[in-house]
Amino acid sequence: MNAKKKEKAPALPALLNRKISKTGQTRGADDDVIYQNRVNRCNTVLIPFHQWKKDSELRKISSNFENGFIVLIQPQDYFSQSDPTQMLSQYALELGENCLVFYETRHDWNTHNPQSLGWECANNRNAPLGGNYVARVPATTASHDSGKINHGYASQSPKGAGIRLYEYASSDTINNCRSQLEAIYWLCFDSVEVAIKYGMTKEGAEKRRELCFKKCEELGLLDYERLFQQRIINKKHRTICPFCLKELSGNGFYNRLEQAEGREVPDLTVTQINLFHIDELKYGEFNHRPYNLGWGHHHCNVVVKDSGIYPTLHWIKEILDRNSENGYEVK
């Protein structure tokens, strides 16, 4: 007997589908940094040597990174060793295989010039890396020989050697996050109405919502109490901004951010609602994961930045208390 054919879900509006899909990508990065710009979170991971050295658990799980890793060691840490090869081997590292010397300052470049050592810059993301070093040294006006130095991973597409360690997520985690984030959209109080407004039929929107909830329940991604505890939904099971706790309208997923008069730019693509990490991305944790992602206001995201929700709330409370103590009542 043939297995029951899986029911196909109606397509989401293109803008919403793209927004959910992009949550599986890293933050932006320009050509003058070592990181890749807007690539999958399962790409090659770049690990600072000091982090690799102190975190034994990181060293244990490094084989799980789907597209490998590269450890970046600063010139002063490498060249200060009497036997750098032996030192690296203590941490299962080998220059040119899974480790590179990373130049970021003019002083390091001039003091330990890799070209005078006969070194080649690396361009491979898997061992062997094709060289011993990579450089991203900014330009300076201090001398005639002051142009920027971008050696390694600077010409191929995509540019950059890899992604930030704390942005990594496995393919399975990325897919689960996308499924849960879609469910959180459907928990907006007007999600079906807005989906219809942007191209879905009423029947299609309701079917897509039903199938999304069913899939998330099967994967253990629709624990309402846990979503509430994480500030992702409220007690009415409606989607809220994790910072200000205001209920979110589905319109914010499509509407562009309002711009201040006189400061408008014609190519603004930022929407009113963006991806929001409850526990911020930081070294020592992998926080792009289910039950740590919600949708929040762009401006709330800007306020929280990398500080985290609760430290930011404490900071705001201190400001309000200080205003009150000095006779400036907030009305």
Rank of each mutant, 00 (worst) to 15 (best):
K54R: 13
S63I: 09
N110S: 09
L58E: 06
F69V: 01
G68T: 01
W109H: 08
Q115Y: 14
T111E: 14
Q86D: 12
F49W: 14
I61R: 13
S80A: 15
P114F: 06
K54T: 14
D77E: 15
Q76F: 11
T105K: 15
N67A: 02
D55V: 09
H107G: 03
R59K: 12
K53Q: 15
D108Y: 07
D83L: 06
F79R: 10
F69L: 01
K54V: 14
F69N: 09
Q51D: 11
S56D: 11
Q115A: 08
S80N: 15
Q115F: 12
G68N: 02
Q86G: 11
W119G: 04
E97D: 08
I61D: 03
K53I: 04
H112N: 13
N110Y: 09
S116W: 09
E104Q: 13
Q86P: 00
K53C: 06
F65W: 07
S82I: 14
P48L: 06
F69S: 07
Y78M: 01
V71L: 04
S56M: 04
H112T: 03
F69M: 02
S80W: 00
L46E: 09
E104R: 13
N67Q: 15
E94Y: 01
P48S: 00
N113Q: 05
Q51F: 10
E57I: 13
L93F: 05
Y103R: 02
G68D: 04
N64P: 03
V71I: 08
D55F: 07
D108M: 08
N110E: 11
E120L: 10
